[in-house]
């Protein structure tokens, strides 16, 4: 026992700088994240303003029972999951490709210029983007339908038609954020050892082969880490975007957990419902994250730890 302790101390002493460096960060998470974490108990309590969170009465899984008992719970669950999955399938690779092809541009000036343009929409809020889209897609006055009309196609009521909702969400989020998301891949590409490229061009490798054999492997671990983190948020669809594109006519596919929590929790005056839904989606997210990290490890890749 004492021997173990001594060898542990010796180990810590050897790595003391590393451990000292960790202290501020760990303290930070303890104070700013773990101290207030008792707030999740609200999901299991009937919150009383006078008694506070800890003093309020327990109601057990009552909120969860209510949530699972709602007849449209499963519709909402699938809507959230399908939308996330589609965003992942189409939205996740897009910034990677963008970064790679930006990197392949020969003119540095033009590269910088286009880079600056593609990240602009990130700074315009969904409220504004939504307004533009609604105008753009309008069946009567929208530019898109006027254009389709000239091709002899009857006007399409995009925002009222459930089959168009998911494509609109996926495409508009690619439009708004893939430029922004490509920044991190650009940083990863910038860290790839340039000597490898030089060696490859000596060997006479074409552009696509260089991308495939050098760029992609060089940023693979960044891609995997981002994919795992993204899977952790599989149940989050982005409230603002859904909210601006959602309406009473596409509700069947547009209702997701975030909007549902709002409708039932706040409109209906069930205050702890939002916490309950949040807790539920977090647990699902955590499971996805841990599972995907395990898979990454199993495939001999660097996971998130």
């Amino acid at each position: 026992m004492a021997k173990n302790l001594r060898s542990a101390l010796r180990y810590v002493d050897k790595k003391k700088y590393l451990y000292i460096m960790l202290i501020p960060g760990v303290l930070y998470f303890l104070i700013f994240n773990y101290v207030p974490m008792y707030g999740v108990l609200i999901a299991f309590k009937d919150f009383n303003f006078n008694k506070g969170i800890l003093g309020s009465a327990w109601i057990g899984f009552e909120n969860f029972r209510y949530m699972f008992g709602l007849s449209d719970f499963y519709t909402v669950f699938w809507n959230s999951l399908i939308l996330s999955f589609l965003k992942l399938l189409f939205g996740f690779p897009f910034p990677i490709l963008l970064a790679i092809f930006l990197n392949e541009m020969r003119s540095r000036t033009y590269q910088r210029f286009t880079q600056t343009l593609i990240y602009l929409p990130h700074f315009i809020s969904w409220v504004i983007i939504g307004g533009i889209l609604v105008n753009f897609l309008s069946p009567t006055w929208g530019v898109l339908n006027i254009f389709l009309g000239q091709l002899g196609i009857d006007p399409i009521f995009f925002l009222a038609d459930e089959s168009y909702f998911r494509p609109i969400v996926v495409l508009s989020s690619i439009w708004k954020d893939s430029g922004w998301e490509s920044i991190i891949y650009l940083a990863a590409i910038a860290s790839v050892n340039t000597e490898l490229y030089e060696a490859a061009s000596m060997d006479g490798a074409g552009r696509l082969r260089r991308i495939w054999h050098i760029t992609l492997p060089g940023i693979k671990s960044t891609i995997i880490v981002l994919l795992i983190l993204r899977l952790g948020h599989i149940m989050n669809n982005g409230f603002e975007q859904i909210f601006v594109l959602q309406n009473q006519m596409n509700l069947g596919v547009s209702e997701v957990f975030e909007t549902y929590a709002y409708r039932v929790g706040i409109l209906g005056g069930r205050f702890s419902f939002g916490t309950t839904v949040g807790l539920f989606t977090s647990v699902i997210g955590l499971i996805f994250l841990l599972a995907s990290n395990r898979i990454a490890k199993w495939m001999k890749e660097d996971g998130i730890w």
Binding site: E181, L226, R230, H233, G238, F239, I266, G274, G278
Partner: peptide, 16 residues
Amino acid sequence: KINPNRVGVLTSVVLL
């Protein structure tokens, strides 16, 4: 964008 912390979500919810 990808990291919607809980507070953020709650914000927009209550904003709405």
